[in-house]
């Protein structure tokens, strides 16, 4: 169609076509729409509430959601291969519990944090092996991991344990000034580092390309001689590691460990990744999209706080509606390509 009319189109027409091509491509379209949506929500918020567009409000979005950003990055890897990880919320809770109980018994933070990251990575490794070696669906394998992690939380303690360790308290209270009375927490910097590493690994390494290839077609990847087995297991290790790190950041944020914490966080992470334009069937999506997805969720929460009269359960309904809009959008975009 485009070829037939190519000789007569004007340069402006071609530019419009190219722009439309970018917007309707399943690769860039959803991410751009998410970006536009984020800007639109900000504009609405800014128009409705005084002080909404201020720097601290925007920075707080990062401060409050640093752990969710880390989770979403790990989840992006998994979903890009066409898998899913339901265990992340429970692993966050488990990390807070391990941190709180170890610190309570006097272990130094320099030991606690590496131990958490190692344990959660090993859990991810086990899940990955279950999925790859035993051909168990990711849904079921990560569900088992979710039960295990949540159960272990209760085994450690069913009560909330508060953290008084000087390092953790200092880390939680440190604010890095950005000038103009604005500041961020070190957690935000860690989260942004994770985003950058995730971005580089996915876009510029052989491993990253293999992740996309598996999502496109596992069989083709195998026939091309790509290390499918190793990559498939590794994405769950990455997700486990990210969940552990998110758990540590969450501990800095709340300064306590609690078994019932972060219930339903896996849904938030999945929602953020989907809203960020990653296809659940795998193969398409960007880490940046997932970050935008987290910011969209965070902004909605902020708006509901600013509104004051809206009850908290409206958040869930809004997230559901947004998911619906994005899924229909992705459907329309990918359908047009075929």
């Amino acid at each position: 169609m485009a070829i037939a009319t190519a000789p007569v189109v004007s340069p402006t027409r071609r530019a419009i076509d190219r722009t439309r091509g970018v917007f309707t491509s399943p690769k860039y379209g959803p991410v751009l729409v998410t970006l536009l949506l984020l800007v639109a929500i900000y504009a609405i918020g800014g128009a409705r509430y005084r002080g909404f567009l201020s720097g601290p409000v925007i920075l707080n979005l990062f401060v409050d959601n640093a752990y969710l950003i880390v989770l979403a990055v790990g989840m992006t890897f998994v979903i890009l291969t066409g898998g899913i990880d339901l265990s992340v919320g429970a692993v966050v809770a488990l990390s807070t519990m391990i941190a709180a109980s170890l610190l309570q018994s006097g272990t130094s933070p320099g030991v606690v944090i590496p131990v958490i990251l190692a344990l959660t990575s090993v859990l991810g490794l086990l899940v990955g092996l279950m999925i790859h070696v035993f051909a168990i669906q990711p849904f079921i394998a990560t569900l088992a991991a979710m039960f295990l992690a949540r159960g272990l939380c209760y085994v450690i303690s069913s009560n909330s344990i508060s953290i008084t360790d000087p390092f953790f308290v200092a880390f939680a209270q440190t604010r890095i000034p950005l000038g103009g009375g604005m500041s961020i927490t070190p957690s935000v910097i860690i989260a942004l580092l994770v985003v950058i590493v995730g971005l580089v690994v996915l876009q510029f390494t052989r491993f990253g390309r293999t992740v996309y290839a598996i999502g496109g077609s596992e069989q083709s990847g195998m026939l091309m001689g790509l290390p499918v087995a190793r990559t498939k297991v590794l994405v769950y290790v990455i997700s486990g590691f990210c969940s552990g790190l998110a758990g540590v950041l969450f501990t800095f944020y709340t300064l306590s460990g609690y078994s019932l914490t972060a219930i339903g966080t896996e849904l938030d992470a999945i929602a953020a990744v989907v809203i960020g334009g990653t296809l659940l069937t795998g193969g398409y999506g960007f880490v940046i999209g997932s970050v935008l997805g987290v910011l969209v969720l965070g902004t909605i929460q902020t708006i509901i706080t600013f509104e004051g009269t809206l009850s908290s359960w409206w958040t869930r309904i809004f997230i559901g509606v947004l998911l619906l809009v994005f899924i229909v959008l992705q459907k329309v975009l990918t359908a047009r390509r075929r």
């Binding site: 849904l267 659940l280 559901g320 998911l323």
Partner: peptide
Amino acid sequence: IIATLILMTAGRG
């Protein structure tokens, strides 16, 4: 999984 995730998220709300 995603179609029913919508109602799972919004339903409790």
